[in-house]
Simulated scan of single mutants.
Amino acid sequence: MMSKSKNPPLKESGSPVVLAFATQKGGMGKTTLSVLVASYLHYRRGIPTAIIDVDTSQLSVYNQRIREVESLDEEGQKRIDEQKTDQKESVQPYPILSGSPVAVPELLKDLPEDIRLVLLDMPGSIDVEGYDLALSHVDMLIVPMETSEYSVTTGFQYLTAIKEIGLLPLDHCRVVWNKFKASRDGSLADQLEEGFLGYGFHCLKSRIPQRDSYQDAANRSTLFPMPAAYLRNSGLKDLFFEVEDLIKLIQYERIQ
């Protein structure tokens, strides 16, 4: 369970940026978004990335990697060996570490030295030992929400707890609308965003459209990015580029 915390640890300019999609309501897409963002930025944009999975009730990202590797055939291995970023540089699968929230400081130390971005897959409940410790190492917290009353209420309560505890500055917290349908949710999302601002909570510009196909194995692989043909119509590119801009902003703030 989270408790009143000391100031978050200072980060060295050369240490990786740690980003977490997190909330206390299940089914909001935190794990799916973690994998999609990590895979795009690592395999396409060439940002050396890792995922640390401390959602100990499932360890779904860690176990997904194990399944993918075990089912990899000769053609798949060849694809890995030939995979290149947008800059035409060769790239190998990003590391995925697992453990408990309490272990986050040590897991961060165990990462390869070249890692520049870490996606931290947090537990789905704040009532887990070490949750506050893990969160104190996060540079940017992104809270996925739907526009439903229950989702907004639980997401707002989660952000309010973060604010009261003081683990993260509010300008390093963002809401992102997930499973979004513009014709249904657009006006309500605009109103909610205006209300959030009164409490110091900001939203990403990106709004992630509702797509059941994000869950398809080929689309959310940890070994490959989302297929280019699907990505073009997925509505996710804006999110990927906005996250990349946030990473640059955090890196810039560290050297000031």
Rank of each mutant, 00 (worst) to 15 (best):
V143H: 09
V143S: 03
V143D: 02
P144T: 12
P144N: 04
M145C: 09
M145A: 06
M145T: 13
M145H: 14
E146F: 12
E146I: 10
T147R: 04
S148Y: 13
E149G: 05
E149V: 14
E149H: 01
Y150W: 14
Y150T: 08
Y150Q: 01
Y150I: 12
S151M: 14
S151F: 15
V152C: 09
T153F: 09
T153Q: 15
T154S: 11
T154R: 15
T154C: 05
G155E: 00
G155Q: 03
F156R: 14
F156Y: 15
F156M: 12
Q157F: 10
Y158G: 00
L159F: 15
T160L: 13
T160F: 15
I162T: 07
E164F: 06
I165C: 05
I165A: 02
G166P: 01
L167W: 06
L167Q: 06
L167K: 10
L168D: 08
P169R: 14
P169N: 15
P169A: 14
L170N: 09
L170P: 00
D171T: 05
D171V: 07
D171K: 00
H172I: 01
C173H: 09
C173T: 15
C173R: 10
R174D: 04
R174P: 02
R174V: 11
R174S: 08
R174H: 13
V175P: 01
W177I: 04
W177P: 01
W177V: 02
N178E: 04
N178I: 04
N178F: 11
K179I: 06
K181E: 13
A182D: 06
S183Y: 09
S183L: 03
R184D: 04
R184E: 05
R184G: 00
R184A: 05
D185I: 11
D185R: 02
D185C: 01
D185N: 13
S187Y: 06
L188K: 08
A189E: 01
A189M: 12
A189L: 12
A189F: 11
D190H: 06
D190E: 06
D190Y: 10
Q191K: 11
Q191M: 07
Q191F: 12
L192G: 02
L192H: 04
E193G: 05
E193H: 13
E193M: 10
E194S: 13
E194Y: 15
E194L: 11
G195I: 00
G195M: 09
F196V: 03
G198P: 05
G198M: 05
G198Q: 15
Y199N: 07
G200P: 01
G200V: 06
G200K: 06
